[in-house]
Write a protein that binds this DNA or RNA. Structure first.
Length: 564
RNA sequence: CGGGAUGUAGCUCAGCCCGGUUAGAGCGCUUGCCUUGGGCGCAAGAGGCCGGAGGUUCGAAUCCUCUCAUCCCGACCA
């Protein structure tokens, strides 16, 4: 493609609204423009990169027996009412004029097709996938293409007879995903994840470590343990039992509010302090007890509560339900459900609030003093805690979710009545899995991992073009001749080539653009080299330059591409 | 949904507190000349309902009210 005839609107200045590198560079390199919040127009460079990612995905999905579909983004609202997902908050965008919604994912449509046409065990298993635009009612789109209201997703679904077959389809997907992301040149890792209300027996996420990621994960540097913080555990020991000093007794703690203040005031270790938080679960107060400054993980809490809506209580709620303010709340005398973190299992000798301001209780024994106490893992793992499987210090970092694979089970089969007849003529529920990859996130992650102060450094597998040929001066007929000749030769060798043949653009400008656009190899056609019958090759990644004779340019470029 | 910020030329911004000629700069764009190995130079131009609506005032980009949009932090995120 010749730049002189192309639409590649590069920007010299950094767009004010973009804060993370991938977002800035996608705008600066002319990949996309924002139409409205969370919605982007993808320009030719972006589309070429997307197509390259799509091709890799199709190859790997087809390799595991996937069949490609293209399902409608417009769905009847009633289908989503059937599965109970119509009114999930911040999920579905709808159409004003008709009872239609814009699909945020496609379990429902897959289910509709499956219910209609899967009849016999002979029809199973199936792997169905598509690459298609999704819509979500994101309350706060951000970070460019990382969280948008409209985005491209490869979604696939397995339909199986048994849980064992589901495992097979799930494992095939896990392996395909590894290949896809490896081929895309991304450094990624896999974490155990929360299946949340999706139900089923398990889920994993494919993550790229990034300070700009919105997920938090715990990773073990020594073994292969890695988990989303929503389910991560650590080897941190329970606080256990201490010497018993009898019944709970009151202690005055004037103006002592935080755990740190309390530990200092009483001169006791944090492990003997049980912190209470109140949540409202379906409008009923629930008290959550954790050790010291341990943080409550709300996803874990949601699982422990067993569904329903919940939120942290407001200061007014605290006063109304306990009679005290934050800092003086405790389990003794609390009327309502109490859930203690597993680290507090059967603990005694604890200090907690007395539900009277400026008053605490000591010698609390959970086994003796708190009837009907429930235990659950509700705390967030902290950086540096021991790995649950090998004991090494865990690292807690942010990450971008590239893909997510779910064992769904029968949730949608039940809602949509997706059934087949087994060998004995019995009607059975189909067992489903669902698997997603965010296409734009692949590109954004590639840029987050591959850029420098001058611009994008595309991995060869995703680069819009293999080679960027810079004709230094279009007023020099020798340069023009060799630039076009090089362009043709590289194309004939099967490479995709971008030729900067703009006249009246200075060499410096072209070099800056070439670095910004980020193709893996640049060929510089200029007077300097041609004097000696040579062209210059530059590797974008490390900036290495070399000279090749004019007739050796194809081989030279191919060698460099192979070496990347 | 809570908190914060910003809307002035295609882009990045100044001007606004403290109201008053014809609203500015740099970049980009057009034309001409010049230059050709790291966003080149000179000159002449085009380009704005100062996000929108109401109000205060003799007079509003500037003050007030409302509204819309965008960004950031948090909440949320099947």
């Amino acid at each position: 493609m010749r730049i002189s005839r192309s639409f590649i609107p590069t920007l010299k200045e950094i767009p004010a609204d973009a804060t993370i590198p991938s977002h800035r560079l996608m705008l600066r390199a002319g990949l996309m423009r924002q139409l409205t919040g969370g919605v982007y127009a993808y320009l030719p460079m972006m589309v070429r990169a997307l197509h390259k990612a799509e091709r890799i995905i199709r190859e790997e999905m087809n390799a595991i027996g996937g069949q490609e579909f293209l399902l409608p983004a417009l769905n009847p609202e009633s289908l989503w009412v059937q599965t109970g997902r119509r009114n999930i908050p911040n999920f579905i965008l709808s159409v004003k004029e008709r009872d239609l919604v814009l699909a945020p994912t496609h379990e429902e449509v897959i289910g509709w097709l499956g219910a209609m046409h899967i009849q016999s065990y002979k029809d199973l298993p199936q792997i169905w996938y598509q690459i298609q635009t999704k819509f979500r009612n994101e309350p706060r789109p951000r970070s460019g293409v990382l969280r948008g209201r409209q985005f491209t997703m490869k979604d696939s679904y397995t339909l199986d007879r048994t849980w064992e077959d589901l495992d097979t389809g799930y494992d095939l997907h896990a392996e395909a995903y590894r290949k896809i992301f490896s081929r895309c040149g991304l450094k990624f890792f896999v974490v155990g994840a929360s299946s949340g209300a999706m139900g089923g027996t398990g889920s994993q996420e494919f993550m790229v470590e990034s300070e700009h990621g919105e997920d938090t994960v715990a990773k073990c540097p020594a073994c292969d343990y890695a988990a989303n913080l929503e389910i991560a555990t650590s080897g941190l020991s329970a606080v256990g039992r201490a010497t018993d000093h009898g019944a709970p007794e009151k202690i005055d703690t004037p103006n002592v509010k935080t755990i740190d203040e309390l530990a200092a005031f009483l001169n006791v270790p944090h492990e003997r302090l049980a912190k209470s938080r109140i949540y409202l679960h379906d409008s009923k107060p629930v008290l959550i007890l954790t050790v010291g400054n341990d943080q409550v993980n709300e996803t874990k809490l949601g699982a422990a509560l067993g569904g329903g809506e919940y939120r942290a209580a407001s200061p007014e709620d605290l006063r109304a339900t306990t009679g005290a303010d934050a800092g003086s709340i405790g389990p003794i005398g609390f009327k309502g459900r109490i859930i203690a973190d597993l680290r507090l299992k059967n603990a005694n000798g604890l200090i907690s609030g007395a539900n009277v301001n400026d008053l605490h209780l000591r010698n609390i024994d959970l086994t003796r003093d708190v009837p009907k106490l429930e235990y659950a893992d509700v705390r967030s793992v902290e950086n540096g805690e021991p790995c649950p499987s090998c004991g090494q210090a865990l690292r807690v970092t942010n990450a971008i979710e590239l893909g997510h694979i779910f064992k769904l089970g029968t949730k949608y089969s039940e809602a949509l009545n997706i059934r087949y007849l087994d060998e004995s003529g019995q009607s059975q529920l189909v067992i489903m899995g669902s698997y997603g990859i965010g296409l734009e996130r692949i590109l954004a992650c590639a840029i987050e991992q591959g850029h420098d102060e001058n611009g994008i450094v595309w991995p060869a597998a995703l680069a819009p073009f293999d080679v960027h040929v810079v004709a230094v001066n279009m007023n020099n007929s020798d340069i023009v001749l060799h630039a076009h000749q090089t362009y043709r030769q590289l194309q004939q060798a099967g490479l995709t080539v971008l030729l900067d043949d703009r006249s009246s653009v200075s060499p410096g400008f072209k070099f800056k653009d070439a670095d910004l656009l980020g193709m893996p190899v640049q060929v510089i056609v200029g007077e300097k080299g041609l004097k000696n019958g040579q062209l210059e090759l530059k590797v974008r990644k490390r900036g290495e330059r070399s000279m090749v004779p004019v007739d050796g340019v194809v081989a030279g470029v191919q060698d460099l591409l192979k070496s990347l």
